[in-house]
Amino acid sequence: MMNDFVRIEKISKIFTPAKGVAVAALQDIDLTIAQHDLVVLNGPSGSGKTTLLNIIGGLDEPTQGQVSLAGQRLTGMGEKEWSETRRDHIGFVFQAYNLLPVLSARENIEYIMRLQNRTSAECAARSLEVARKLGIEAVLDALPHELSGGQQQRVAVARAVASKPRLILADEPTANLDSKNGNDLMEMMQRLNEDEGVTIIFSSHDPMVINTAKRSIVLHDGRVVEG
């Protein structure tokens, strides 16, 4: 169903940092996110935004509950299925950029497409197209450590969108950027959402991100309190 593109049912996550100590990061979360939506998970530090994002993307496992993407149940899938789902359907943008340090900007952008066994010509054309949209075509041959924070985050966004995923998960994407770069990034994400129809879920407590989003879901102490 179009309106249930991402479906989160009764998700709880309990961490046990030490024996006998249990911390509930998420408690009984029920959510649905529609396709082409631009959603922000909002809330103070420790509210469970990143944990929820990680569970949606399969980077972490819930203690209970389940997640579905376009009607396909993701929770409980094996390593192979999860890798293929992340590779083919989900793009990630991390707060700390998380580019592969040994690859150039171009190779980072092409990385997921290479995993998908796309041809070199296809990878090159798509990476150039995305780089032009994001204004980073001049730095394609630079290594991550040679780029500024803003440039690295654009490369990270380019990597996430180049393989045309159906869903992008962006964890505090503006947290390490100044206001100008943060603004630019949000404009780009908005354009991608509108032009390419990608569903985007942010986690952030940055007002600029919250104002850009079409929908804001507020979390507090691991529970949805609004949205």
């Binding site: 890798s83 590779r87 083919d88 998380n98 592969l100 340090p101 040994v102 997921i112 995993l115």
Partner: peptide, 16 residues
């Protein structure tokens, strides 16, 4: 490990 974690996160198989 962090680099490998990133690779896993974006869809690289463990065997790759």
């Amino acid at each position: 490990m962090r680099e490998f974690g990133i690779m896993l996160a974006v869809g690289t198989r463990f065997r790759q």
